[in-house]
Design a binder for these strands. Sequence first.
DNA 1: CAAGTGTATTAACTCTCTTAATACACTCAA
DNA 2: TTGAGTGTATTAAGAGAGTTAATACACTTG
Lengths: 134, 134
Amino acid sequence: MILLDYRDKRPIYEQMVEKLERLIASGGLEQGSKMPSVRSLAVDLAVNPNTVQRAYTLLEQEGYLYTISGRGSFVAPEQEWRDGQMSRMLEEWVTLTRKARDAGLSQDVLQEQLWAVYSRSGPEESGAGGDMEN
Amino acid sequence: MILLDYRDKRPIYEQMVEKLERLIASGGLEQGSKMPSVRSLAVDLAVNPNTVQRAYTLLEQEGYLYTISGRGSFVAPEQEWRDGQMSRMLEEWVTLTRKARDAGLSQDVLQEQLWAVYSRSGPEESGAGGDMEN
DNA sequence: CAAGTGTATTAACTCTCTTAATACACTCAA
DNA sequence: TTGAGTGTATTAAGAGAGTTAATACACTTG
């Protein structure tokens, strides 16, 4: 299902979350389909069940999965996680915008930058943020 | 000059940076005036000189201080740190705005929120961000 | 009830971060 | 030139948070 990268310095659960997010977001898993059980995926990846559990819990909080105790975890409908992601992002953006205002940045400057960001569509001037793996 | 709070869980150097930032930003220290030497302030606060050194280095990177080796550290002109702070903030804001765009948030939504933030002047809906000490 | 599932608790382990000890380098005045 | 002041670099010790694992508990279904 997914593959862990041992050269990656990040914690395992974080790696799992990222890869599963992508898998679901890209449509690689159908809505409502059953995820592997905590134990089976743990055996599969040779990690502790609690590590899988942690990843699943985070994915659930982000709206990617829903869980029924005793039954299993399932892939949530797209609307779920897309809405959640956008609302979290908006909240974060507003918070930072307030800080920018308090730091003395004018509305005009932000207005202009906002326009600039949207006039170019792709993620330009990447710098360090590039993602290149699975 | 400043006072450390031992109930504060944050590292000492971080606490020092915050308090000195405020002291300088509030005009409590005159431009060009000499800061206490690394060693004397260390004795004063009963911490290691390296800890003071670390705080000074950070403050220098933020433009609050400038240093002449062998002479001492001095309070930088206001323009220095104010410009630096605003440009760092703007950069961060643009980065997050790109992410928001990529997450699917429309320009209109951000536009509206931007307006809302600036129509109210004070830091409202604070929640956890409140600062109440020295 | 048995075998599957998720969940909670506790502890060991690792590793980053903070802080300290110490030595080095520069400036200035006596 | 030398000594007492200053900032700077290197190394290591110590503490602490975060990650992972071991284990037991609880729920669902055939």
